[in-house]
Amino acid sequence: MSALFEYIIRLGDDSLILGHRMSEWCGHGPILEEDIAMTNIALDLVGQATSLLNYAGDVEGNGRDGDKLAFLRYDREYKNTLLVEQPNGDFGTTIMRQFLFDAYRKPLFEKLQNSADKQLSAIAEKSLKETKYHLKHSAEWVIRLGDGTEESHQRIQESLNTLWRYSSELFYTDEVDAELLSQGIITDIAEVRAEWEVTVKNVFEEATLHIPTNNWKQEGGRKGMHSENMGFILAELQYMQRAYPNMEW
C-alpha cells in the first residue's frame, strides 16, 4: 500500500465520518437557521470525502472508486481520527468537536496547497475555502457559548474536557508522513500544530474556557483502531451496500 494512498485515506475518512456525524443533525438543529448552517458543513465534508476518496482510488489503481472506499471497507481499514467519530452530544459538543478539527484542518489545507502532488494541492485549495468558513462559524459559537450564560459556559467547558483527549491524534505521524515529507508532498505537521495551538488558545481565552490540565491521550483511529462508536456509524453508512450488494442506485 503506497504512503500517498494511506495519507489521502486518512484525510478522506476524517471528512467522511465527520460529515456523517454532522448530517445526523439535519432536521434536529437548535434553530432553523443553524440547522441549515450545519447541513452546509455536512455537505462540504461529504464533498471533500468524495474528491479525496475518488483520488485515493485512482492512486491505488485497483478499480476501487470513492463509493467502494466509503461504503465497502472493514472498520480497521478506516483511518479517521477518534475525534471525528465521537457522538454529537449536545449542540456545544458538536461545535467543540468541529472547532478542534477546523482549527487543525485550516492550516493543514493551507500547507497542502503547495503540495508537490498536483491533485492533492487542487483538492486542498478548494477545501480550504470551505474550511475557513467552518472555522469562523465554529469559533464564533465556541465564544458565544463559552461567554454566554452560566449554563452554556458549563456545558461547553464540559464538552471541551471530554474531547480534549482526542485532539493530540490530529497531529499523529508515522512512516507514511515521513515518506511524503521527503517527497515534498506534505509539510512538517509541527507547523500545523503550532498554528492550531495559537488558534485554540486565543479562542478559548475569548470564550473564557480553560484548557484541561488532564493531558491523557486517546489515539488509534489513524491506525484503524477505533472506538465503539465506529461500528454503529458503519452499520448505518454501509447498510444499503451490505444489504443489497452489487447494485446501482
Partner: peptide
C-alpha cells in the same frame, strides 16, 4: 441521509 446508498445520493438528499 446516514443510510444513503452512495456519496452522490447522500449529497443530493442532504
Amino acid at each position: 441521509i446516514t443510510r444513503a446508498p452512495n456519496l452522490r445520493r447522500k449529497a443530493v438528499l442532504l
